[in-house]
Amino acid sequence: MHIVVCIKQVPDPSQARIDRETGMVIREGVDKITNPFDLYALEEALRLKEAQGGKVTALSMGPPAAAEVLRDAIAMGVDHGVLLSARGFAGADTLATSYTLAQAIRRLADVHLIICGKQAADGDTAQVGPGLAANLDIPHITQVRKIAQITKESLQVERLTDTGYEAIEVNLPAVITVVKEINEPRLPGLRGMMRAKKAEIQVWGPEEIDADETRIGLKGSPTQVWRTFEPEIHRKGEMLTGTPSEQAAALWERLRAL
């Protein structure tokens, strides 16, 4: 079984700041880490590999420095890292990113399962997982909290919903996005870290993945961020004071007036 995990390097959310002028996340001078949700995706892939055999490839798109998150993934136990990095990929929105990652997965070939974190901690869109499935024309399930069963042909999962969960079976290959309830990500081991230090990270550009130049990077990105703002809260709370019975009486009056 060949599992691909899509991971993203993001600014450490605990140090996050936004440029009010441009509405963009400030990436300079902030530590960069693996998107926290992606760690659950990596852990789940590694558990499946340990139980079923096979290999795990971590895939990321970003500047050359993003190879760091692929090394961290290798330290956890991932077999290979592939980085999509080229000038032409820069400025991609979720549409272009989904297309680009899909092209890379086509090149990887013989992929049974693609696992993503439920969303990235910087953009928070949760669109790339489903977008990837659309590009590859395969099914997807978001918000997976448990993999109940997996064979080479199919997958049974529990999908988290607002009211409980759904049990879903799907044919493979498929894309799933996972939530943090699914597992507890492991720490890397020293042997893994040493292997990661020496590991060769494959770097692919548009040519290697046979990409349509009009669908990648800024050219392939119709999204424009107009403004980023904190929504104003119009509802106002009011504290009722006095003894419990006075408060109850005041509340009753308020409700009756509605």
Binding site: R186, L187, P188, L190, R191, G192
Partner: peptide, 11 residues
């Protein structure tokens, strides 16, 4: 077990 998995007993 965490220390073992992290290879710290091997140092």
């Amino acid at each position: 077990e965490v220390l073992a998995e992290s290879d710290l007993f091997a140092v």
